[in-house]
Simulated scan of single mutants.
Amino acid sequence: MNEVKSFKAWQELLTQQEALLLFVKTDHCSVCEGLYPQVERLTEQYPFPFFYVNVAKVPEMAGQLSLFTAPVVLLFRQGKETARFARFVPLEQLQKRLDELKEACG
């Protein structure tokens, strides 16, 4: 997964990618650290990129995306959010939504 280092970079990604996943984490978050490798393992199964952002380093992202907790997994298609999973992410449901996104992208 590639890191998003600024809100401006994030805005550019949204216009450049047809679909993507964004994993949102923060400092000192044990749930984030436990979930990250599980989500990262899914990258090989999907044709669109996965990104992550640490909102402690890019706080503007939390405000712009209305993020109130971490971790959060967001799916986007054509610049619009299509799914949001927060705090405790059920991997089975996440994979189902990723499969739907993959189908929608062709």
Results as ranks from 00 to 15, higher is better:
1 M>S: 06
1 M>I: 01
2 N>E: 15
3 E>T: 03
4 V>Q: 00
4 V>G: 01
5 K>Q: 09
7 F>I: 08
7 F>R: 07
8 K>C: 07
11 Q>P: 02
13 L>T: 02
15 T>N: 12
16 Q>L: 05
16 Q>F: 00
16 Q>N: 09
16 Q>R: 10
22 L>S: 02
23 F>E: 02
24 V>P: 01
24 V>Y: 01
25 K>P: 05
28 H>V: 10
28 H>M: 13
28 H>G: 08
29 C>Q: 00
29 C>D: 01
33 E>T: 11
35 L>R: 03
36 Y>T: 05
40 E>G: 04
41 R>W: 10
41 R>E: 14
42 L>E: 00
44 E>K: 14
45 Q>K: 13
46 Y>M: 03
49 P>D: 10
50 F>T: 02
50 F>D: 02
52 Y>P: 01
55 V>R: 06
61 M>I: 15
62 A>M: 10
66 S>I: 10
71 P>L: 07
71 P>K: 07
72 V>H: 00
73 V>L: 11
75 L>G: 06
76 F>R: 09
76 F>T: 06
77 R>G: 08
80 K>I: 12
81 E>N: 08
84 R>A: 07
85 F>G: 03
85 F>D: 03
87 R>L: 12
90 P>C: 11
91 L>N: 07
94 L>E: 06
94 L>R: 07
95 Q>M: 14
96 K>N: 14
97 R>T: 11
98 L>V: 04
98 L>M: 15
99 D>Y: 13
102 K>R: 15
103 E>D: 13
104 A>W: 04
104 A>S: 15
105 C>T: 13
106 G>N: 04
